[in-house]
């Protein structure tokens, strides 16, 4: 399809859609005047019902936990697809170096870089854990904390080099974290059904308001999501880095 044809199609569909867009925008309640009733209701009853200060976590892991379960599996499917498409026969060998352009000099890593990475790697890991653990009281939770934890592992690559990174970040563990996190979340949904409650009903003791361990089942689901996101994102980094690695002799390239 030529560029001109594509643009004509776009213009035609815009002609159909733009009046609709304009009408919808005109009928939305003015910006900043009121919020949807559902959110208003959750804000009003949420803290008392769940002993949780962070309403976003309460929605993600409890009130609309079923939706997050679906989203969790989307995450799992996207990462599984990435791994399947990229891995081929490699991904288990850990001793290789990343690919280099021939002729480009190999600059040795400065000791300062290694030092900074060794200092900040654990700090970022602690910060990520802090964000994960305080999901129910302050802004944060498994999604945000998990991404911070996964980013922290990149410092190992920066500080220790490719081989060191592959030795310390094990692919099998990442798979287990990713799948295990989704499993924990699913079991949190199915567990209450064993005692006759509804799917994902929050049966655990809710704890004290503003306490780190408040929210009951929310805490476990949050941990499951943190595991899945950490494992999944680190797995993504690993697979993309693997793509830059020179295949060892006798190793199959990914089948085409």
């Amino acid at each position: 399809m030529s560029l001109r044809l594509r643009l004509i199609l776009l213009a035609l569909s815009a002609l159909v859609l733009v009046p609709g867009f304009g009408s919808v925008i005109g009928h939305i309640p003015g910006f900043g005047s009121e919020i949807p009733a559902y959110g208003e209701l959750i804000n009003r009853i949420g803290p008392a019902e769940r002993q949780v200060a962070n309403m976003v976590s309460a929605i993600n892991f409890d009130i609309r936990g079923l939706d997050t379960l679906g989203e969790e599996f989307m995450l799992l499917a996207a990462i599984a697809g990435t791994v399947v498409l990229l891995r081929g026969q490699r991904g288990t060998d850990t001793a290789d170096t990343a690919i280099r352009l021939p002729g480009r000099p190999l600059v040795p890593r400065a000791e300062a870089v290694t030092l900074v990475c060794r200092i900040f790697g654990p700090l970022i890991a602690v910060f990520g854990l802090y964000i994960v653990l305080h999901a129910t009281v302050t802004p944060g939770g498994g999604f945000q904390g998990g991404v911070i934890l996964a980013s922290g592992t990149m410092l190992i690559y920066l500080g220790e080099g490719y081989a060191g990174w592959r030795r310390s970040v094990l692919s099998g563990w990442l798979d287990a974290m990713e799948g295990g996190g989704a499993l924990v979340f699913t079991l949190c949904g199915l567990g209450p059904m064993l005692v006759g409650a509804a799917f994902m009903e929050n049966l655990l003791p809710l704890g004290i308001y503003k306490d780190m361990l408040s929210g009951g089942l929310i805490l476990i689901e949050n941990l499951g999501v943190a595991l899945a996101v950490t494992g999944g994102f680190t797995q993504l980094f690993l697979e993309f880095m693997e793509e830059t690695r020179e295949p060892a002799a006798g190793e199959d390239t990914p089948s085409e």
Partner: peptide, 26 residues
């Protein structure tokens, strides 16, 4: 307070969007 539902939606949207971008790049 502002609506927490849309914030929860955006939060999960960003995470799934990032992994889907990775899938598309692959």
């Amino acid at each position: 307070a502002v609506d927490p539902v849309v914030q929860a939606l955006v939060l999960t949207d960003i995470v799934v969007g990032a992994t889907l971008t990775a899938l598309l790049l692959v």
